[in-house]
Nucleic acid binder design. Structure first.
Length: 221
DNA sequence: GACCAGGCACATC
DNA sequence: GATGTGCATGGT
């Protein structure tokens, strides 16, 4: 199998095993953006606690959150961990949104994907994965998200070497798949679902739907 | 108690 | 450019 076939085969197996994930669970684009920052290196169940706190306090709009005192905001998102730095990151995003787009998330929709990605990367606290999560899940732009699981899983299957950078891995997927936001959405979600179940840092893959495909099941980071 | 989770920025060499 | 460290909570 060549890379393209392997990438499609893996997608199909994941879909067969786990079915559609329908990410990102949320009530609004803004909630997705906030969630993308809160979930940085953090378990999703902790993020849900933080999001619920924000909902209870009616803070899940750009206006309300921008006005909100940072100490209060930090206390509410505390369950998501790194709460002080994440407060700053959310405020940095909002400052950018208000200074450039009048606080309107909708104003981002017509912008070109690669331009918007660069803009987001210019905000302190938003790196590549967070920017791509905002673009793909928040704004339905076709951009592939790479995360720790992606590198680990596809490294084990010989498609990626450990020295590959984020953009190289992203390009591997984008050049072998149709430029389709819905497809990228499902694929990333399925990778995370698989990762949670089978691909923790320990290289144990018993019962993994990709078991028979793997030819490099060894420690890979 | 150790390890991990849907990262990122910054310091240092 | 690569490598190390701080940021912090909650579940297993």
């Amino acid at each position: 199998m060549n890379n393209r076939e392997l990438i499609l085969e893996i997608y199909q197996r994941l879909l067969d095993r786990y079915s559609r994930q329908n990410w990102w669970p949320s009530d609004s684009r803004f909630e997705i953006i906030v969630g993308a920052i809160l979930t940085q290196n953090t378990n999703w169940s902790n993020v849900e606690k933080a999001i619920n706190n924000l909902k209870k306090n009616n803070l899940l709009t750009p206006e309300e959150m921008y006005q909100c005192d940072s100490q209060i905001l930090a206390e509410l998102i505390r369950p998501s961990g790194y709460y002080n730095i994440k407060t700053k990151r959310i405020k940095n995003f909002l400052k950018w949104l208000f200074e450039n787009y009048d606080g309107q998330i909708e104003a981002l929709e017509p912008l070109e994907t690669s331009y918007l990605r660069e803009e987001l990367l210019g905000i302190n606290g938003i790196g590549k994965e967070t920017a791509d999560s905002i673009l793909l899940y928040g704004l339905e732009k076709p951009t592939f998200i790479v995360d720790a699981y992606t590198a680990r899983i596809f490294g084990r299957h010989g498609l990626i070497d450990s020295y590959w950078g984020y953009d190289e891995i992203k390009e591997l997927f984008e050049s072998n798949l149709d430029k389709d936001a819905k497809l990228y959405n499902e694929y990333h979600a399925l990778i995370v679902t698989l990762g949670k179940e089978h691909c923790k840092k320990r290289p144990i893959c018993k019962g993994c739907p990709l078991e028979s495909l793997a030819h490099e099941i060894e420690e890979y980071f």
